[in-house]
């Protein structure tokens, strides 16, 4: 029941982002969606380095993964801020 609801909210969200329509975005990404995004980030942050990249003895392993994950969150975080509450007016 809740999964189709979240999926539907995300498709609306992506539509709004693509079309620069930000009204209501903050509520589309409601508290349960925040939680979900946080959990996905946490899962990637932990499981990929500790299970998929554990024995890669190179900067191209966990070092690169954690750096890229952080940069991705920064880029999407700033984009989210810019398109929701970070208005210049």
């Amino acid at each position: 029941m809740i999964i189709p609801e979240i999926l539907s909210k995300y498709s609306n969200l992506m539509y709004n982002f693509r079309n620069h329509k930000t009204e209501g975005v903050i509520f589309l990404l409601n508290k349960f969606s925040y939680l979900l995004v946080g959990l996905v980030i946490a899962a990637l942050d932990f499981f990929v380095p500790f299970y998929a990249l554990k024995d890669v003895g190179s900067f191209l392993g966990s070092y690169l993964f954690w750096s890229v994950l952080t940069l991705t969150v920064i880029v999407f975080g700033v984009l989210y801020v810019d398109r929701t509450w970070g208005s210049k007016r």
Binding site: Y34, V37, G38, I41, A42, D45, P49, G61, S62, Y63, W66, S67, L69, T70, V73, I74, G77, V78, Y80, V81, W85
Partner: peptide
């Protein structure tokens, strides 16, 4: 080694995430 980077990047990742939601 690299675990130290992961620990500190985890901090930064979640700080950006939390700031985007809580700062306003």
């Amino acid at each position: 080694g690299v675990g130290a980077l992961g620990f500190e990047m985890t901090y930064l990742t979640f700080t950006v995430f939390l700031l985007a939601i809580f700062a306003p």
